[in-house]
């Protein structure tokens, strides 16, 4: 349009605008191309299933897939009236609380211990403590099943040396959930300690110097400097552990298969069980999945709200 640039002053605004627009389109297109593969995968395998799952939750399918019955919200109403399912929710809550609080507390303790400045061997200490991070949930299940073995288990044998008659770890309702949670805490320990340690190390040394000058002892320093300044890290750990604890499958599957009497059947395990074990009812399982999804969203929302106020960012 503007072929005489030198003599006449061009109407710069429109030309620029157009150029900008063109550039914008190009940039958008290019940006989108970079995103496209990830978006595609996530859409197909994360977002679409949100819808499919809901559709499935409204049906009842014969165990071998040949027949489907529409039940409307029947699966949901039955779920909420199902005392077994309410028990499952309770189990899940306890399980999550144990893993989140015991797991994070232990990790913070170990992180503080590991942050003690040593000249030698600190890589070795870390190695020993971090190492569970490379262990899968299936292998964790196997290792702990061996340790918890009711007849020849090392744990009860060790307790016996201290005169304690160890409990029946995996076969009593009282202990099974704790036993599984301990295995999970163990597997996640490496991860938690690494993050907690990074958090501890990130704290500005001058705070401690100042505290030292004020004559604060170790405990005071931990209580009044380390922990408050660690709160963003702690918050992160809480969230991650919360989400992970709802995803625990391998340990439950290998240690207890959800038993005894449903004592270790968490919401995820119940979904798996109803969808793939015994006489599978995928619709019922999908309804459970949906309830869990809503629950996770709600809790995460509350956590973030709460954290917005409480977490101490440096």
């Amino acid at each position: 349009m503007n072929d005489s640039p030198s003599t006449q002053p061009p109407p710069p605004r429109t030309a620029n605008k157009q150029k900008i627009r063109q550039r914008k389109i190009k940039a958008t297109l290019e940006g989108f191309l970079y995103l496209f593969p990830s978006l595609l995968i996530l859409t197909i395998f994360v977002y679409i299933p949100i819808v499919t799952s809901f559709q499935m939750s409204l049906t009842r399918v014969a165990p071998f897939g040949s027949k489907t019955i529409d039940v409307g919200i029947g699966n949901y109403t039955r779920l909420l009236a199902d005392s077994d399912y309410l028990y499952t929710i309770k189990v899940t809550l306890i399980f999550t609380l144990i893993i989140v609080f015991a797991g994070v507390a232990l990790a913070v303790f170990l992180a503080i211990a590991l942050s003690y400045p040593l000249d030698h061997l600190s890589w070795f200490h870390r190695l020993l403590i971090f190492v569970p991070i490379v262990i899968s949930s299936a292998v964790t299940g196997v290792l702990f099943r061996w340790i918890y073995h009711p007849v020849i288990g090392y744990l009860n044998y060790a307790l016996l040396q201290f005169g304690i008659d160890g409990p029946n770890w995996l076969n009593s309702k009282e202990w099974a959930l704790i036993a599984v949670a301990m295995a999970v805490i163990w597997r996640q320990l490496g991860f938690n300690v690494i993050i907690a340690l990074a958090g501890v190390q990130n704290i500005d040394g001058t705070y401690y110097e100042a505290a030292k000058v004020d004559g604060a002892n170790t405990w005071h320093r931990i209580r009044h400097i380390t922990l408050p300044l660690l709160s963003p890290t702690l918050f992160f750990l809480f969230i991650i552990n919360f989400i992970n604890s709802l995803q625990v499958f391998g340990e439950i599957n290998i240690l207890t298969e959800g038993g005894p009497g449903g004592a270790t059947t968490t919401m995820l395990y119940s979904i798996y069980y109803d969808a793939f074990v015994g006489t599978p009812f995928r619709g019922y399982a999908s309804a459970q999945a949906y309830l869990l999804f809503v629950l996770i969203l709600l809790i995460s929302f509350v956590q973030f709200k709460w954290a917005g106020k409480k977490v101490h960012y440096q």
């Binding site: 009593s172 309702k173 009282e174 038993g259 005894p260 009497g261 449903g262 004592a263 074990v277 015994g278 006489t279």
Partner: peptide, 17 residues
């Protein structure tokens, strides 16, 4: 197969509950 599992749970109902 699913019903058999209820018997397994029944043991726990007696022994634990």
């Amino acid at each position: 197969p699913a019903i058999r599992q209820f018997i397994v749970d029944a043991y726990s109902a007696v022994l634990d509950d």
